[in-house]
Write a protein that binds this DNA or RNA. Structure first.
Length: 573
RNA sequence: CGGGCCGUAGCUUAGCCUGGUAAAGCGCCUGCUUUGGGAGCAGGAGACCGGAGGUUCGAAUCCUCUCGGCCCGACCA
């Protein structure tokens, strides 16, 4: 392609509304243009990259015998009601909904478990047709609370979503493993540094789940990993061995103490001269379940923090929010800062973190303004709470396998694979005829890749102060042949020749024949980030050109033929 | 949802506090010159200052509402 015919609009300055490098660079390079918050137009160059990403995705999924389909983006409400997810997705505010002329409600698909399950129920009748793995690549719609970072968190974005159908769990394990393999190959081929981590299944539901994280400071997720054992998990899911609590001196009578204006853990440490690990803070949450609302009191060791994702899972609820001051006062009968487990109303759910199990002599609030209690024993002085893992794991703590300390990194979630089991097929009564002759619900898995996000993640991981350094497999062009002065016939001629030669070799090259001065030309190309270049300039009269590698900045004067050889070698062709 | 900041030309911004009829750089267009690192000269187009009300003789500027955008927080017992 001749760049003189490609719509290229580069900006010299960073856009005012971009924060992270990849967002700035994609906008400056004219790759993306925002049309509304979280909604973008992909320019011609961006689309080339996206097509390359999707081509890789297709190749690797097809290699695992997945079949591409295309489902509607607009879904009838009734389908989502049948899976039981309409309520939660609407409550979370994540779903775009709309009505037709008759007032029938629809949504713009944020994900497609419902549609695919309905399809599978129609299309798959017998175990003889299984296993089946179906995927599509299309736009998804999610009304994100806070769209940001360009394509990183958009409200409309390109996603590959796949769904596997098996006769049983063992079959699912096989399908899941196949997708795990495919994902690794996909992200490797896209040139990404990534790590797969254990993950919470979230609103999708189901049992096992793994996320593929592109390691980057700008990532919105925190991951914890252990170099020694390879354990790695999203912080939402991560477990760890916390620092030991101080020795428990044994049963002692409840001791109510006046603690005026002592409200926080820090203040309590100072007031009592006790370590935070000897205390139990009691945090109140307002809880939304599918069918009701209520309050939960969560006891956590004073030096540890509550993981709200784990809490939502433990409560089997839709959402939790920290209780308002009014609620706290109403439930505890005390001002904020004095909440405790003692004498809480019966309708308040009482949970405690596992680190508190078996502990005696805790320091807690008294549910009375100005007082805390020493030597609180759960089960004696208050109801016995249900003990669950509710704690945020932290870097520095021991890996749950005990192999070594956890380290922390930031990641961009580009892929996620789930074992769904029969959750959707049961809810939606999607069955096949099993060998036994009985209708049996499909055992499902679901798998997603954020295609547009992956492309941006690649930029986040591959750029320098001059611009983007695309990994070759997903670069808009693999190589640019630059004609420095389009008025010099010998330069034009040689550049055309090299351009044709590269294309004949199957190399995705472009010809920069734009009538620009050299400065802007070079700056543009560095910003746009094509991996290799052959610059045809002054040396053209002697058949000499410059071979350039974007990533390293390396530039070499070589004979024209050698430049083509160098590009071939670099691309492994 | 809360909290904060911001909407002025295609982009980045100044002007706003202290009202007087909009400015600069980049980009864009024309011509000349220049052609290996965002050139030079000359000329030019381009903004009812996000929108609606209000105050005022007069509003980009002050007030109210509204729409849009960005950031922070979703953790305190």
């Amino acid at each position: 392609m001749r760049l003189s015919q490609v719509l290229i609009t580069t900006l010299r300055e960073d856009p005012a509304d971009a924060e992270i490098p990849s967002h700035k660079l994609l906008v400056r390079g004219g790759y993306i243009v925002k049309i509304a918050s979280g909604i973008y137009t992909y320019g011609p160059l961006m689309w080339r990259t996206l097509k390359k990403v999707t081509a890789i995705v297709r190749e690797e999924l097809d290699r695992e015998s997945a079949q591409e389909v295309m489902m509607p983006m607009m879904h009838p409400k009734e389908l989502w009601v049948s899976s039981g997810r309409w309520e939660r997705y609407v409550a979370d505010g994540i779903m775009f909904t709309l009505k037709d002329q008759k007032g029938t409600e629809y949504c713009l698909g944020p994900t497609h478990e419902e549609v695919i399950t309905a399809y599978a129920d129609q299309a798959i009748n017998s175990y003889k047709q299984l296993p089946v793995n179906l995927y599509q690549i299309q736009d998804k719609f999610r009304d994100e609370i806070r769209p940001r970072y360009g394509l990183m968190r958009g409200r409309e974005f390109i996603m590959m979503d796949a769904y596997s159908f098996d006769v049983d769990e063992a079959g699912l394990d096989v399908s899941y493993a196949a997708m795990d393999r495919a994902y690794r190959r996909i992200f490797e081929r896209c040139g990404l540094q990534f790590r797969s981590v254990q993950a919470d299944a979230g609103a999708i539901g189901g049992s096992g789940s793994e996320e593929f994280m592109v390691l980057a400071e700008a990532g919105e997720d925190t991951i914890l990993y252990c170099e020694e054992s390879g354990y790695a998990a999203n912080v939402e899911k991560a477990d760890s061995v916390p620092a030991a609590a101080p020795a428990d001196p044994g049963s002692a009578p409840l001791d109510r103490r006046e603690t005026p204006d002592v409200r926080t853990v820090e203040q309590l440490e100072a007031f009592f001269g006790m370590p935070a690990a000897a205390m139990a803070k009691t945090v109140l949450y307002e809880v939304t379940w599918t069918d009701r609302e209520g309050v939960a009191a969560v006891m956590m060791r004073g030096d540890l923090d509550i993981n709200e994702v784990k809490l939502v899972n433990a409560l089997d609820c839709l959402a939790v929010t920290l209780a308002s001051d009014e609620t706290i006062q109403k439930v505890t009968g005390a001002e904020v800062g004095f909440a405790g487990p003692i004498g809480l109303p019966e309708d308040v759910v009482l949970l405690a973190d596992k680190t508190l199990e078996g502990r005696q002599n805790l320091l807690t609030g008294c549910n009375e303004t100005g007082y805390h209690c020493l030597n609180v024993q759960m089960g004696r002085d208050c109801r016995m709470p249900e003990f669950r893992d509710l704690r945020v794991a932290k870097a520095g703590e021991m890996s749950p396998d005990g192999a070594g300390p956890l380290r922390q990194a930031r990641g961009i979630e580009v892929g996620h694979i789930f074992k769904l089991g029969t959750k959707y097929s049961t809810n939606m009564d999607a069955t096949f005829m099993a060998e036994s002759g009985k209708p049996t619900p499909f055992v499902m898995g679901c798998y997603g890749i954020g295609v547009s996000r992956t492309a941006q993640a690649a930029v986040e991981q591959n750029h320098d102060e001059r611009g983007i350094c695309w990994p070759a497999p997903i670069a808009p062009f693999e190589c640019a042949v630059v004609c420095v002065d389009v008025k010099k016939p010998e330069q034009v001629e040689l550049a055309e020749k090299l351009y044709a030669e590269l294309r004949d070799l199957g190399i995705d090259a472009c010809l920069d024949d734009r009538p620009l001065r050299p400065g802007p030309k070079f700056k543009d190309l560095e910003l746009l980030g094509f991996p290799f270049s052959i610059t045809v300039g002054r040396g053209a009269v002697d058949g000499m050109v410059e071979y350039g590698v974007r990533r390293t900045g390396e530039k070499t004067d070589v004979a024209a033929a050698d430049a083509v050889t160098a590009v071939r070698a670099a691309l492994g062709r």
